[in-house]
């Protein structure tokens, strides 16, 4: 079944104090079915993450449509009301990054259980599911009731993935989730994504290491710099490239 139909999708940022518009991408077209994995490729700065953020509506797209087949019918994510987007984020569309936003005095278990509690699940059920999820990503049980603000980067990432993937979703947007994971966590993530895919979850992924999800990819979308863009990357981009290949 078709889940997403994106047409003539555009984004440019208007920076008022420069009185400039900075184009990110222009005229994108693609479709996605249930259980499909779309890998977004392209050089740094081409708008891969921006595309994901537009679909999730952290950014406002500036043109085109992103028609999404929700449980309640088709809706254009580019123009849906904010409250409708909030509902879709709660029930259908997930966003996975590599960063956790821990809060002081909130335990790992509580952070991971929170999305389920927000959906109305009981404390016991949510915590049991959270424990199982933390186990999947290999966080040591003695850390479950500790505060992630004090965790190492790797431990925080395990909590982050558990929290991001605990709710059942129909569409997952993956923004470099494997960027700096250790090997076992990366393997656990790929296995979890595989399970979700078999259950019909559609995914759009931006990955520094596409080989992590090699067996899952059904289609690729190559983004290119718009015509007239400078051939040489600037310093920021060079630094990002160095980081990416370290």
């Amino acid at each position: 079944m078709r889940l997403l139909d994106v047409r003539d999708y555009c984004k440019s940022f208007t920076i008022h104090h420069l009185q400039r518009a900075v184009p990110a991408f222009d005229g994108l077209n693609f479709t996605l079915d249930e259980g499909e994995f779309l890998l977004v490729r392209g050089p740094n700065g081409v708008g891969k993450s921006t595309l994901l953020r537009c679909l999730y509506r952290s950014y406002r797209p500036t043109g085109g449509q992103a028609n999404y087949h929700s449980r309640h019918g088709w809706i254009d994510l580019a123009a849906a009301a904010d409250v409708d987007m909030a509902l879709l984020r709660q029930d259908e569309i997930g966003f996975v990054t590599q960063f956790l936003r821990p809060r002081p005095r909130v335990t790992a278990l509580e952070l991971v259980a929170e999305p389920l509690l927000a959906q109305g699940q009981t404390q016991d059920a949510a915590e049991a599911a959270a424990a199982a999820m933390l186990d999947v990503f290999g966080l040591k049980p003695e850390l479950w009731s500790a505060y992630p603000t004090t965790f190492s980067g790797g431990e925080q990432q395990k909590v982050n993935l558990a929290r991001a993937l605990i709710r059942p979703r129909r569409l997952l947007l993956l923004d470099e989730p494997t960027a700096s994971l250790d090997k076992p966590t990366r393997t656990a993530l790929a296995a979890r994504l595989g399970e979700l895919k078999r259950a019909g979850v559609a995914m759009i992924g931006v990955l520094h290491h596409p080989e992590d999800v090699a067996g899952l990819v059904d289609q690729e979308l190559a983004l290119a710099l718009p015509a007239g863009a400078p051939a040489l990357p600037d310093v920021t981009e060079l630094v990002e490239n160095l980081d990416a290949h370290r």
């Binding site: 920076i15 400039r20 708008g47 500036t62 309640h72 849906a80 409250v83 600037d234």
Partner: peptide, 28 residues
């Protein structure tokens, strides 16, 4: 937004601000 497009400054064009698409009334 600026940092998501690292070479944005170089690619910036002096054009009319391109505002977001107008939102619909809630449906869901």
């Amino acid at each position: 937004p600026v940092s998501s497009s690292p070479n944005g400054a170089a690619r910036a064009q002096a054009v009319q601000p391109d505002m977001g698409i107008a939102l619909q009334a809630p449906r869901l």
